[in-house]
Design a binder for these strands. Structure first.
Lengths: 184, 184
DNA sequence: TCCCTGATGTCAGCGACTGTCATCAGAGTA
DNA sequence: TACTCTGATGACAGTCGCTGACATCAGGGA
């Protein structure tokens, strides 16, 4: 028989989502999350660098998902088209986890530290996307990536808040149009 | 005779800039900063909400500086022109404090928590700018503000890293051109 | 059979931050 | 002159986030 229940990391994530959701991030201690997961505080901090990270642990992969999508776009595709391919990949995985993502959003928007961390994650996405765009020879790749991620965030926000979800790609095209109007 | 030296807040900011610069943010305790300023740790946390905020205390005003610049732009100005007016106001105050800003940049870029906080401040700038743009009837004001702030950051970065500073407005126009190429 | 490894527990300790109460110079007021 | 009020500070105790060091022990491989 196994000495411990398997999947401790996942149990910590579930426990955090529950407790942060019930009482708010600031009112829950790391030790409480660990206890609900049947683990100790020390083990919590072995899995996650800090109390916030338990809500963000899987986001690094998403940055690579976008970047890989851009790399997978046909060579003749314009940068904008390549970006849309990148976000399409993201969109699929988001659909399956919509409920969990929504609960997570509600927790994050209630707390300034978590909003800060979310911004940092988006910045990492931006860096990964910029790198993929630079490989395609896009000029001012960092800035272009910022615009793309900002548009993607807007589209995601509209998608998750809507009862009847708007297709992500459509929202992004609208966003790009607004940006075009601004810089023209 | 005054019971305490005046200007405790400023002394804390100076002490923090010195100590964080000498040994790095993570290696300095709040109590040490306070001691160098001739105050106690408790007083440090009365002036600043946390150990990071001592480097960011004056940034809120800057957000309003940009937004006010946009509001001051002539009614017939395009959104892009209005944004350029907003940043011009910022540019002037930055020139005078270039040395201090550079020391601050060096500290922030060395530490992940400080970079996070900086992103949060930029997000606040974005919100203030979006509000001013919305008053002008700009569509998708939040997204447009994101693009504008991203461009401004890029321009600022280029300005502060260059030995012979590039004019901010020029760098911004270049940025807008790159964005235009992307979304067209 | 034995050792090694990896995930966990235990414990001690530092530093960030907060609540609470005390202090006291200077400004305002009688 | 005396009296009070206020605001910035100090003192102190306490909680919580996070870390280092060491112990434990099931399962896998030599």
């Amino acid at each position: 028989m196994a000495r411990w229940q398997p999947d401790g990391r996942r149990r910590l994530q579930d426990a955090a989502l529950e407790l942060y959701g019930e009482r708010g991030f600031a009112e829950v201690t790391a030790a409480e999350v660990a206890a609900r997961a049947g683990l100790t505080e020390r083990t919590f901090f072995r899995h996650f660098a800090d109390k916030k990270e338990v809500l963000f642990g899987d986001e690094t992969r998403l940055a690579e998902t976008i970047a890989d999508g851009v790399r997978a776009a046909p060579p003749e595709a314009s940068p904008m088209e390549a970006v849309l391919v990148g976000f399409a990949a993201l969109s699929e995985s988001a659909h399956a986890r919509r409920d969990r993502l929504l609960r997570r959003e509600r927790i994050i928007e209630q707390n300034a530290e978590l909003r800060e961390r979310e911004l940092a994650k988006f910045a990492a996405w931006t860096a990964a996307l910029a790198s993929a765009l630079r490989e395609r020879g896009v000029a001012e790749a960092s800035l272009v990536a910022e615009v793309a991620i900002a548009t993607g965030r807007m589209a995601f926000h509209r998608w998750i808040e809507a009862d009847r979800p708007v297709p992500l790609a459509e929202a992004m095209r609208e966003g790009f149009a607004a940006v075009r109007a601004f810089v023209s």
